[in-house]
């Protein structure tokens, strides 16, 4: 069938697709094109097309900028903390939930732990202030008078651990969904056979559960590694001022303050582009490594 004939046959479908295609073209592909300002001295008044090309000047300035490297270091540190302390928790919680044999209990706990995922970061930050803040619940209950027992909110040293704890509180429960699905897909016969062969709970976990959900865990780890330069823009932007830029500036907030707030458009776009390229390289390499280890990875 020629393309024209197929177009005629599918004209209704093409009409249905039109708004969606227009959205992706304008807000993703035209936007992608707007990244060229990383190679320009962008002046809003003359627009993207009219601004002068400056080659790699913005990238040169970026690589020589101490603020950028400080932000990059914060980002990577925070990301590693998240991978080490956040990543295993949904797995553990999912195991715990899966081991609950009473359906009603499991459902109740699931409903409760999924909930924080749907609450905005503004509210999460407010909740944490109300519980951990100087005028909050814990200091009120256990601190004696003027001395603050818990000095977390606004303390730069506590910033990174606090970000991880907030993330755990918000998304640990939600993270169990995908693990639970993987656990449900494990053939019960394997457990039964292992039990009959005399394997106790730990050996069943080690020899049946873990190998069965390994592919999913590897997949999640790859996705997380590819995102190592992304650490929750909204969460950090909301708390950056309270903790100070030294502790709390990450690449995404750096881009926001340099570009939108201070108007160094080309410079900020260069930082974002740099981050995107490094991220893409990371996903590709992590995926390649996964293939080499015999896993399926994210894509072929």
């Amino acid at each position: 069938m020629t393309h024209l004939a197929r177009l005629r046959r599918d004209r209704a479908l093409v009409l249905l697709m039109a708004p969606g295609i227009a959205y992706f073209l304008v807000f993703h592909y035209v936007a992608m094109f707007a990244n060229v300002i990383a190679f320009k001295e962008y002046v809003p008044f003359v627009g993207v097309g009219g601004s002068a090309w400056v080659g790699l000047d913005n990238f040169q300035a970026l690589l020589g900028d101490a603020g950028f490297w400080a932000a990059a270091l914060n980002t990577v540190l925070l990301s590693l903390l998240q991978i080490v302390f956040f990543f295993p928790l949904p797995v553990a919680l999912a195991m715990l939930l899966y081991s609950v044999t009473r359906g009603s209990v499991r459902k109740f706990v699931q409903s409760v732990v999924y909930l924080p995922h749907f609450v905005s970061w503004v509210i999460v930050v407010a909740l944490f202030q109300q519980v951990l803040g100087g005028a909050g619940l814990l200091n009120g209950l256990f601190g004696d008078g003027n001395a603050h027992l818990i000095d977390v909110i606004g303390n730069p040293d506590a910033f990174k651990p606090l970000m991880v704890v907030e993330l755990v509180w918000k998304d640990c429960g939600w993270g169990t969904i995908i693990i639970l699905a993987a656990l449900h897909n494990v053939d019960d016969g394997l457990y039964e056979a292992a039990a009959i062969d005399g394997a106790g709970p730990w050996r069943r976990f080690w020899h049946v559960t873990l190998p069965s959900i390994r592919a999913v865990l590897v997949l999640l780890l790859i996705l997380r590694l590819g995102d190592v330069l992304t650490v929750g823009f909204e969460q950090i932007l909301l708390q950056r001022d309270a903790f100070g830029a030294d502790a709390a500036e990450v690449i995404d907030t750096f881009v926001y303050y340099q570009g939108i707030v201070q108007g160094n458009w080309g410079f900020a776009a260069a930082a974002a582009l740099f981050k995107g390229l490094v991220g893409a390289v990371l996903v590709f390499s992590a995926n390649k490594i996964a293939h080499r280890l015999g896993e399926q990875g994210v894509y072929r």
Binding site: R9, I21, F27, Y29, I37, I260, A272, G276
Partner: peptide, 28 residues
């Protein structure tokens, strides 16, 4: 087999790898 289905789907999937940044979105 819808006409244009494959390229459009690829176009969508590609945005997973390269989401639009804040600055380009702002400019658009």
């Amino acid at each position: 087999g819808v006409v244009g289905g494959k390229p459009v789907m690829l176009m969508v999937l590609f945005t997973f790898l390269f989401p639009p940044g804040m600055i380009p979105s702002f400019l658009v």
